[in-house]
Design a protein around this nucleic acid. Structure first.
Lengths: 336, 336
DNA sequence: TTGAAAGCGCTAACAG
DNA sequence: CTGTTAGCGCTTTCAA
């Protein structure tokens, strides 16, 4: 392996000069620089990045802590992170927690040991005070999730208002008996979407019937099961707001199996706008989360922090959008 | 930052002993070891991993080169890799190529510069001879894709036999006019699935009608468009084998929009067995690729190579499986 | 604009 | 079983 001293020797300069040519070319006289560059080319010299990382104690690598790579929402955010990171010469290390808190702590050590320059969390179950201590000392951004009470930089959408938008859309379509199948209620985003649902009903003088609120776990199966329960009620709902798109497919399946048509007999609105919602038949009306942009923005903020600019340590709320497809029945109405 | 010499001093031993306690505890007398461990605890010493990587010129990190993270097949394989890597203390660096060859070459440099201990490719578009040179010197595994002519370790399924299985299944159900919507034909896997399709027809004395073979690009939209074309034929097919599940949803959609029912008027078989195929209505009969296992196996082989065992540098073919759901019409027949 | 020199913190011979 | 010693290859003062 050819090293810097080999280049230096052959070019009749010092190691220091070679180093400068590589990292601060403008501080070296052009003729010297060209000479060194030529030798580097000739010897096919590749700097030892490990030595550089060690010496500079920085890695050009950031860590992304993800609860589950198989979840399309997370992989889209990851795509956004990767894109932005790549543009700036940063590498992305994957850290799959499988929703285990212990794993989160483990990966925190990576950051503390300076094995990475910063960290983006896609879920934060760890102790708030621990995270708070970390974020004071190291670059950290949270996205897709958020925490109350600690000022950690966050990139999210407004899940309360999104939940309200989804529900109001169904109300405007004339529904008054609207169910909500929530995500896991230990997640703040699920609580928020539920909160938005409640607000929409109340603001439109509709009763909140707790029997119409069922907790799901974001899977197709839970959507199917909870909807089946709802359809067994004496007064079943005529519309459902589902906390994500996958559950919405389960809801629609349950309705069909019960002999109902969507949207004629049951209107459905989902959440996320993953590809599934566009592909499914009927197309699922949904709240679009700007997943790619969330990743991008999170990475952008992290880079600012890494570069010592802490002015970006704020809460960022990105715009969500209602995407109307067939499952809610609005299109049909518009056509007639 | 407390360092090894601090621990050594406080414990009245040499740095070497501290290092041994950390990396080869069994070579240190128990009492000494316990003393050192206690001091480490007390000082909350964290070894500088960057220094270790530099010194040992190894990183405990492997690189996964992925054409597109958003593709569920790839993210499942990634999941398998991550799982196996985690078990052995290896970290996974993500490298998204967005299908650009230049990116592949770029990431190859990572490996050559020893920034990572090994590399798993989920697609290999680069020049074979380049890859061949690399694989002779560095640990590399290819999965989900393969290359002809060079002996690079590979983990795949047999796409020819899978294509045959899928097509034969449709033949057994009584179909004789079977179409195939392929993946992008510059990919060997697409060519192989097509080859299997052809073999199945020929072996069953059915004509291969080229008009029934249309090239798609693995998206829902291409499935929809190509199926629409096929349905406009004078003698449209009564069954279709789709090279992946997402296109199968487009095919089904096109059939419905054309007033046909699936599977009654058109039988459909997909490929991959991603969650979508189970969720979709109708459920899509498909060839299951053991995605997680592929990732696992690939990582396992890579670890062997990293540890200097080259006996594993072989081609591994994993088992695929036909998963029967509603879209092919077999279930109905069984019931009647 | 360039060079000399001093490490960064750890590991691994080697010797005892 | 433990200590001494000599770096790994690079960056960065400091001085010229």
């Amino acid at each position: 392996m050819v090293k810097m001293s080999d280049v230096a020797e052959k070019a009749n300069v010092s190691k220091a000069t070679v180093s400068r040519v590589l990292r601060n070319p403008e501080t070296v006289k052009k003729t010297t620089r060209d000479k060194v560059l030529a030798i580097i080319e000739q010897l096919n010299y590749q700097p030892n990045i490990l030595a550089r990382h060690f010496r500079r104690s920085e890695t050009n690598t950031i860590l992304v802590v993800i609860p589950n790579i198989l979840n399309t929402v997370f992989s889209h955010i990851l795509g956004g992170i990767e894109h932005e990171a790549g543009k700036h010469g940063y590498r992305v290390l994957l850290a799959n927690t499988n929703r285990q808190v212990e794993k989160e702590y483990e990966f925190l050590d990576h950051l503390k040991q300076r094995q990475v320059d910063g960290m983006i969390l896609l879920s934060a179950r760890m102790d708030k005070s621990v995270l708070y201590d970390v974020m004071k000392q190291y670059p950290v951004v949270l996205t897709a999730d958020y925490l109350e009470g600690i000022p950690i930089p966050t990139v999210t959408i407004d899940n309360v208002s999104s939940g309200r938008t989804a529900t109001e859309h169904l109300i405007k379509l004339g529904h008054s008996r609207i169910a909500h199948i929530t995500g896991p209620l230990h997640l703040l985003v699920s609580q928020d979407r539920l909160k938005g649902y409640r607000q929409a009903l109340l603001q439109n003088d509709l009763d909140v019937d707790n029997i119409l609120i069922q907790e799901g776990d974001f899977t197709h199966e839970s959507g199917y099961n909870q909807m089946t329960k709802l359809l067994a009620l004496e007064h079943p709902p005529t519309a459902v707001f589902s906390a994500n798109d996958e559950m919405a497919t389960g809801i629609i399946k349950a309705a069909k199996d019960h002999g109902l048509s969507v949207p004629e007999d049951l209107a459905v609105v989902g959440f996320d706008n993953v590809k599934l919602s566009a592909i499914y038949d009927p197309g699922i009306t949904t709240i679009a989360q700007p997943m790619f942009e969330m990743g991008n923005k999170a990475m952008e903020i992290l880079l600012h922090q890494i570069n010592g600019d802490d002015s970006c340590k704020k809460q960022y709320v990105l715009q969500n959008e209602l995407v109307i497809r067939e499952s809610c029945g609005a299109k049909r109405k518009n056509n007639s």
